[in-house]
């Protein structure tokens, strides 16, 4: 520490440590402790109806209500859809990322990167809105379908079996967050030495073996990072389900918001905390499965 003080001076060290303490406490830790505190108390309304005043799991009870499974099915739909979308994005993006990182020529790469960056920087509200007009009754897709004698399709009420979300929401969520899968995998594959691929090919490895034994192991941190971020963004998405969800695809974030709209801060905090815990579990599981550290993940 004396070495650090010599190097930066007392003022410098105080400024750096002071900023970090303020950042960690005021922007991250205390707000989170507050959220936990709110989640572990019953709302004033519930207390007036006889709920305990101290720390309690009362705000989580709607999840376990035996007579009303609406919240449980909302959570189940959100998680099933999110898992399906994360997996689909991974499968769709891996070839794209590999192509951009190792196959594309320089000129093509610039052009394609541009084509990726533009939708990436247009915000999620407009990305969802674009699909809303495209899939509406008067939209282009229904008109094209009508031309070949099909439809009209009710994309906003057409539930996908198993995951129970409507098709418009599914397509819109993939569209809004797919690029968060491309960039981490691209960065990871780009750092792979092309000679390794060439050597494997010269030694007679098939393209499938090359990917299974060389490219995918090297891209692990990028794959883990892409899956974690995509999962978190899809599960935590609010405006996309609002714009594309229709009547039947209520999203868990909408359940959080509905608590806030009736000024039940405790209920909203409890649901928000649950969402965060689920994302945390997903992160830990992914890190274990892929054997990567937090630094590997944030680097790509």
């Amino acid at each position: 520490m004396t070495e650090t003080i010599q190097r930066f001076g007392y003022v410098g060290v105080t400024l750096v440590i002071g900023s970090l303490v303020a950042w960690a406490l005021l922007l991250i830790l205390i707000p989170h402790l507050m959220l936990i505190d709110y989640a572990l108390h019953a709302s004033p309304g519930a207390i007036s109806r006889g709920a305990p005043t101290g720390w309690t799991f009362h705000s989580f009870l709607p999840l376990f209500d035996p007579d009303d499974n609406q919240l449980r099915s909302t959570l189940a739909r959100t998680l099933a859809t999110t898992a399906a979308i994360t997996l689909l994005c991974l499968i769709v993006c891996y070839p794209i990322a590999y192509y951009l990182a190792k196959v594309a020529t320089r000129g093509w790469l610039s052009l394609l990167m541009l084509a990726l960056l533009v939708p990436f920087w247009v915000n999620e509200v407009l990305r969802a809105y674009a699909w809303r007009s495209l899939l509406s009754r008067n939209g282009l897709i229904n008109e094209a379908a009508a031309h070949v004698g099909l439809g009209p399709f009710e994309f906003f009420n057409w539930q996908i079996p198993l995951i129970d979300a409507n098709i418009a929401l599914f397509v819109g969520l993939v569209y809004a967050y797919v690029l968060f899968m491309v960039f981490p995998i691209f960065n990871a594959i780009e750092s792979l030495d092309r000679n390794q691929i060439e050597a494997a090919r010269d030694l007679g490895a098939s393209w499938w073996t090359i990917h299974r034994r060389i490219v995918i192991p090297h891209a692990k941190p990028g794959i883990a990072s892409g899956c974690i971020v995509t999962f978190m963004l899809v599960a935590g998405s609010f405006i996309v389900p609002v714009l594309l969800g229709g009547r039947s695809s209520f999203w868990f974030t909408q359940a959080i918001e509905s608590q806030f709209s009736v000024l039940n801060w405790n209920g909203g905090s409890a649901y928000a905390l649950l969402l965060e815990l689920i994302c945390l579990v997903f992160i830990v599981v992914m890190m274990r499965v892929f054997g990567v550290t937090l630094r590997d993940i944030t680097r790509s």
């Binding site: 960690a24 507050m34 978190m232 974030t253 959080i256 905090s269 965060e276 937090l294």
Partner: peptide, 23 residues
């Protein structure tokens, strides 16, 4: 320190918004 400072990137935006609002 790294884990704490980086954690908001990996948390859903709705949670960041709500916890800041509450605090």
């Amino acid at each position: 320190v790294y884990a704490i400072l980086i954690s908001p990137i990996l948390a859903p935006g709705i949670v960041l918004g709500i916890s800041s609002f509450i605090f």
